[in-house]
């Protein structure tokens, strides 16, 4: 086992533990914290894939901004029901839902993951993750998506300000 594989396994295990924590921890603050751990390790996985810019953007956007916002809201709501009941295992619909989910996971495993098991990277220019490359692409080939994103963000800002106003 090479060092890269060890590093990946460590990161993957931490990320999965974080994801499990989000779903199964009872206190919302702890869920948020495990999501932060998940996001930071995901950023590191992006670094492994060679996407420097997106890895750091992941940490800036998700861990630095979005999750702080989540914590902010959780604290304002002051954890309505921290002892939330997550034991839905007795519900029959839930069990069948879980079975269906397992079926979907098995299908994805069979048709996507099984065939890609022996696919390794091909040789090509590995500078795709640098900020220069991303800037270059966004201002030449993908200008319209970029502008649409900016309009979307503007709408988000306006919408959240409207919602935050006391009177509608």
């Amino acid at each position: 086992m090479t060092l890269n594989q060890v590093a990946f396994i460590i990161l993957a295990v931490i990320a999965l533990l974080g994801a499990i924590g989000v779903v199964f921890l009872k206190s919302p603050v702890r869920s948020a914290l495990s999501l932060v751990i998940n996001f930071i390790t995901l950023g590191m996985v992006y670094f492994m894939l060679g996407n420097q810019m997106l890895g750091i953007a992941q940490i800036v956007v998700y861990a630095g901004a979005i999750m702080v916002l989540f914590l902010f809201v959780i604290m304002i709501l002051r954890s309505q029901h921290p002892e939330e009941d997550t034991s839905l295992w007795k519900d029959r619909r839930f069990v069948f839902g879980l079975l269906g989910g397992a079926l979907v996971v098995a299908l994805i495993y069979n048709f996507v993951i099984q065939p890609t098991q022996s696919i390794y990277g091909a040789e090509f220019d590995r500078s795709y993750g640098s900020p220069q490359a991303i800037g270059q692409t966004f201002f030449t080939q993908y200008v319209y998506p970029f502008e649409i994103i900016s309009v979307l963000l503007l709408l988000g800002v306006v919408g959240s300000i409207m919602l935050a106003k006391r009177k509608f």
């Binding site: 861990a63 702080v68 604290m75 900020p131």
Partner: peptide
């Protein structure tokens, strides 16, 4: 000496909020 030096600094400084908030 990474390509994303300044962004790294911004990212880490934004993580500084967690200690205080928690």
């Amino acid at each position: 000496d990474v390509e994303i030096g300044i962004l790294y600094a911004l990212a880490i400084s934004s993580l500084g909020a967690y200690g205080i908030v928690l």
